[in-house]
């Protein structure tokens, strides 16, 4: 998947804003939003929040987890733990990126938050890299990984699933003595199934 597609999915996340205008309920395909009353907080999808912010029609209330103390703690925990720590949001990276780009004035100490989130991302990326290497090296076919966010999973695509397909082919070749047309065919089918899941 393209990172932009992941971002698109993440923009459905709700976030609370304080509008500076009045409006009735807006009916959208994904659900109703509003009503908007000036200076009363209301929850809207992220994409709408950004859009309203760009028109200067609202103030965005950053999510609870977006503060220095909590993120520092999270970073330390991520450093200590060997496995992945549960992130406060399924799309923390995207939310942070969008909010820090478009609503810097609504977030206190935005620059520091930006750095910490980048640190957390980097720690997690290096964990992903080493665990992927272990996975391929031990010719495992699956690994249980909890608390990875969609964007992080997406960083290993398509390299990891495709590499695993090749490992699978070579492993299969090891167990079958003579490759015939039929094994090639069954390989083809199984890999179709595999890659439709993985990509």
């Amino acid at each position: 998947m393209n990172p932009d597609e992941v971002e698109f999915l993440a923009e459905k996340q709700l976030i609370s804003i304080i509008p500076t205008f009045n409006s009735n309920v807006i009916h959208l395909i994904s659900g109703d939003v509003g009503p908007f009353r000036a200076s009363l907080p209301v929850r809207v999808p992220l994409w709408m929040a950004i859009n309203l912010k760009q028109q200067r029609k609202c103030k965005i209330q950053p999510p609870d987890w977006m503060n220095i103390e909590q993120l520092e703690e999270l970073k330390e925990e991520e450093k200590r733990s060997k496995t992945f720590v549960k992130m406060p949001s399924e799309h923390y990276m995207i939310e942070a990126k969008l909010l820090l780009n478009y609503a810097t004035d609504d977030i206190s100490r935005a620059d520091e938050i930006r750095t910490i989130i980048k640190d957390i991302w980097d720690i997690r990326m290096s964990k992903i890299r080493s665990s992927v290497d272990t996975l391929v090296r031990n010719a495992g076919f699956y690994a249980t990984v909890d608390h990875l966010t969609l964007m992080e999973i997406n960083t290993m695509r398509p390299l990891l699933p495709h590499a695993l397909d090749q490992v699978y082919r070579m492993k299969k070749a090891q167990s079958t003595r003579l490759p015939t047309q039929s094994t090639t065919l069954s390989l083809l089918n199984s890999s179709h199934r595999g890659s439709s899941l993985s990509s």
């Binding site: 391929v136 010719a139 492993k171 070749a173 490759p179």
Partner: peptide, 27 residues
């Protein structure tokens, strides 16, 4: 292809090992 002419299966083994070891570098 070649591994079908290798009775002991060393070739397929080395293919897999080579791929696994080199994957880190590739990544």
């Amino acid at each position: 292809y070649v591994k079908q002419f290798d009775a002991r299966g060393d070739v397929s083994k080395i293919l897999l090992e080579t791929f696994q070891v080199r994957f880190r570098q590739l990544m």
